[in-house]
């Protein structure tokens, strides 16, 4: 399982890249493996205000659907339109082209709740 260093993670298997007061959000390699071939990503609307743990997006594969909960509160300022045509980017380029949305953070302090790569790796071990 690939765990990219320098990113933050949640127990729901989101990855978060923090850049100043902006966060880019995607799902981890573990999550894309569990879902299988991604067939559809429902992107949030730009400008949407979202609170931590609210549904940000829904990802579908052939036999499963998974809600993606916002790891941090803020306003959606960018979404990955490429996923409309090629949702499989989440499978093929999980930590790069497979990003879902960029959120402008309301409370940067919320990132205290996130795990770094090492802690996420330990967390994954507890799931086996």
């Amino acid at each position: 399982m690939n765990i990219e260093k320098g990113l933050f993670y949640t127990k729901d298997h989101d990855w978060i890249k923090i850049d100043g007061n902006q966060a880019t959000i995607g799902i981890s390699d573990y999550a894309q493996h569990a879902l299988g071939d991604i067939t559809f990503v429902e992107l949030p609307g730009i400008g949407k205000e979202i609170k931590q743990q609210e549904t940000l997006s829904t990802i579908e594969s052939v036999k499963a659907a998974s809600d993606i909960y916002a790891p941090l509160s803020g306003k959606v300022i960018k979404v990955n339109e490429a996923l409309n045509e090629t949702p499989e980017l989440i499978n093929t380029s999980t930590y790069n082209e497979g990003w879902i949305a960029v959120v402008e953070l309301d409370k940067p302090s919320e990132k205290e709740n996130l795990m770094d790569a090492t802690r996420y790796e330990e967390y994954l071990k507890t799931l086996e």
Binding site: F40, E60, K63, A64, A65, D67
Partner: peptide, 13 residues
């Protein structure tokens, strides 16, 4: 197809 919308997968959602 699009079975992920349906009750046997999505249940209450």
């Amino acid at each position: 197809t699009l079975q992920a919308r349906e009750q046997h997968i999505r249940r209450e959602k």
